Amino acid sequence: MNDSAPVAVDLALVGGGGAGSLVLAALHRHGVRGLRVAVVDPVRKHGQDRTWAFWGRPGGDLDPLLSASWDQVEVTTTARRRVLDLTPLRYAMLRSAPVYARAAEAERHLGVRRIDAAVTGLDDDGAGVLVRGADGVPLARASWVLDSRPRPPARPGRTSWLQHFRGWWVESGGPLFDPARAVLMDFRTPQPGRGVSFGYVLPVSDRYALVEYTEFSPGRLTDDGYDRALRGYLGRLGLDPAALTVREVEDGVIPMTDAPFPRRPSPRVVRLGTAGGATRPSTGFTFSAMLRQADQVAGALAAGRPPVPAPAYPRRHLWMDAVALRALDTGRVGGPEFFDRLFDRNPAERVLRFLDGDTSPGEDLAVMRSSPLLAMTSAVVGDAAGRIRGRLCRPVG
């Protein structure tokens, strides 16, 4: 873009990754017409750069794009292996390439303007937002901005962990995997001193699967640390890493924190994705909330309302997450024990809906009763004390 005057649009999507792509597809699906839209991002996303795994009911809009789905998953500890029937839900894998391709198709139908530039500022005067690029150059003037760029929280949380992982897409010369069943959590990995680790396996066929090592802990590993962990996990599965071909490697880091992520930093700027609170603090799951945000934004615009989605999770769930994180962080409860009890004492469908923020208060109580009560009660007291200290120490003005 070489024009000196900023482009006038109704909606500017700052960031064209997963959250922005889902919004574009939702606008097209909801039949939004006559809306001037711009996507502002220095990079045009395409190809396979990430994989999302999520659960939901079959028959959704994303079904034609899925790489695989499973009605059963395994949760394994050193003590036992549990096979969970997810009916009426299913666990699904979605790779990024078809999501980006669908967004590109939606762009063409919607007549979206692309601005290939990094955004350095959003000046919101209450009537609109001036989107600025390098050296403060005006790029666009938008009635509303949806900002999905990664952002730090408004202030540090009482507990701040990371979900960090590395996955190998491995291919074998013969049948090794069961394509009818995914491994959701396998806690037979060596557990870190402070945190929890697990492996999982998402098979696309009997010879091709994503095998991943994940940690919930305060800090990342080295590259060699992730590779050692993956080789060790493959050995635990009875697989020889030397007999497998690694076709792709995926890495990721997702915040797990009770720190606040403001959804509306100014009147006409709305944040989406992790920056807009879509990441579940206790698990790092993000995709389902991003999908809800996109659908709510598109539905609001189709009805002539402001594009402001609802909070990604109920406040009571965020409080429960803060307590769970504190219990894990202080060592009051072990990660494998916590998740093992969660799945052992609740129907799998309830656990998955809880992790998606879709359970009733009565179901939430059932989930709470299934956790180690003494340890969690201690964490509740500690969380309350931390909140009081935070309010007393917070600067005034």
Rank of each mutant, 00 (worst) to 15 (best):
S21L: 06
Q191T: 11
D3E: 12
P262I: 10
W161Y: 11
L22A: 04
V253W: 10
R345I: 13
G335H: 09
W52G: 03
D321T: 03
P336W: 02
R90T: 10
G232L: 12
V14K: 08
V43N: 05
V137F: 06
G16N: 03
A300I: 07
P336G: 01
G284Y: 01
R132T: 13
D223L: 09
G357N: 11
D223W: 09
L301A: 11
L210A: 02
P347M: 03
V297K: 00
D125A: 10
D41E: 07
D49R: 04
R29V: 11
G334V: 08
V137L: 14
R231P: 12
A97D: 11
G18L: 13
R292L: 06
D383Q: 14
F187Q: 01
V270H: 05
D147H: 01
H30A: 14
A25D: 07
P260H: 07
L272G: 00
P203Q: 01
A127G: 01
Y226T: 02
R326V: 09
T330Q: 15
V204E: 15
T214E: 05
V396K: 11
E105R: 06
D344N: 13
L352S: 11
A310H: 12
G15W: 02
G304E: 03
T159W: 03
R166Q: 13
H317Q: 15
E250V: 01
G397W: 04
D364M: 15
A289K: 00
D116R: 15
V75K: 12
A53S: 13
V333W: 06
L22T: 04
Q72E: 11
R102M: 08
S69D: 07
R353Y: 08
D85L: 08
D71A: 11
E74N: 01
D344G: 14
A117Q: 11
S288Y: 02
A303Q: 07
D383C: 14
R141P: 06
F54H: 05
R188I: 14
R345Q: 15
Y233R: 09
R149L: 13
L230T: 05
R36V: 03
L86V: 07
L221R: 03
V246E: 02
S282P: 07
P314L: 01
P395L: 03
E105T: 08
R369A: 15
D224V: 03
P88E: 14
P281F: 04
G238K: 08
A385F: 13
R389M: 13
A117F: 12
A384L: 14
D178E: 03
T330H: 09
T76D: 04
R369K: 14
G126C: 08
R369D: 08
